[in-house]
Amino acid sequence: MSDGLTALLDPRGIRLDAVAADRDDAIRQCGRALVDIGAVLEPYVDTMLARERSVPTYLGEGVAIPHGTTDGKDSVVRDALAVLRFPGGVDWNGETVSVCIGIAARGDGHVAVLAQLAEVLLDPERARALREATTHEEILGLLQPTEGAPAS
């Protein structure tokens, strides 16, 4: 399972001290991170903004998961995640977001990691640990799918 997470979450796609002016800026930075690691092509970023305007991706516990629309799938090169931590917080339609997990996906390779994220957010202690993570290892440790989790 660790190979799965490592393949999805390139260390270059983790940023622990990002700063964003507003929600759209934060989403663009997530998109940029996905472009930089070669997971998506440039047009994907606009579909991430479009998606946020139709249905917000705020999950709760200070975490949002910006991603593109069906139209954006053509711009996805490979399934990948980017984790951007905004220690100063970003206003997200009245909520404060401290962690953005940008998603690029054509298939279901990332589903186990998202299921794990849901578990983390249901546990206030682990959710806080994710918001306050200061190392790559902490982020990877929290998002590592637990043993026996469904693969898809």
Partner: peptide
């Protein structure tokens, strides 16, 4: 869902579990 790559996928995984 809309694109089927993010939040709805996560909710489906949660419900399946």
């Amino acid at each position: 869902c809309d694109a089927g790559m993010g939040s709805s996928v996560m909710l489906a995984a949660q419900l399946r579990k």
